[in-house]
């Protein structure tokens, strides 16, 4: 039962990672245990500081997590959304398209590469 795992160009040993993770955990616990035991859990010290302004309304959900990514990829998503329109006729259309591409590859593939 040797955990060493050899791949084509190197090796990987999960035990090293396990040791490293355990060390990191021990250090984290050590730092945490040095903290002030009397610190209050309530009272708002964990909240964001808005320089005295009125706190904005909380309306950020898990769906907004990657907003920037969606905004920059908008042209791509417009196309893909049209593809996933949920109409079964179009599902068949995409399948037929795949079929045509495969037929072309299988029939003419040999010639193009020789």
């Amino acid at each position: 039962m040797n955990p060493l795992f050899e791949t084509a160009s190197g090796f990987w040993n999960p035990v090293f990672l396990f040791v490293a993770l355990s060390l990191a955990l021990i250090i984290a616990i050590a730092i945490r245990s040095r903290g002030n035991k009397t610190a209050k859990k309530t009272g708002g010290q964990g909240l964001a500081f808005f320089s005295g302004n009125v706190e904005p309304e909380q309306n950020i959900a898990a769906g907004n997590l990657y907003w920037g990514f969606f905004e920059s990829m908008k042209p791509y998503y417009d196309v893909v959304k049209k593809m996933h329109n949920g109409i079964v006729n179009d599902y068949v259309f995409w399948f037929v398209l795949l079929l045509i591409v495969l037929i072309v590859t299988f029939v003419f593939g040999g010639m193009a590469w020789v």
Partner: peptide, 10 residues
Amino acid sequence: AGISQAVGSL
């Protein structure tokens, strides 16, 4: 080789 290369790449 030719056709399996094409099909594999696809």
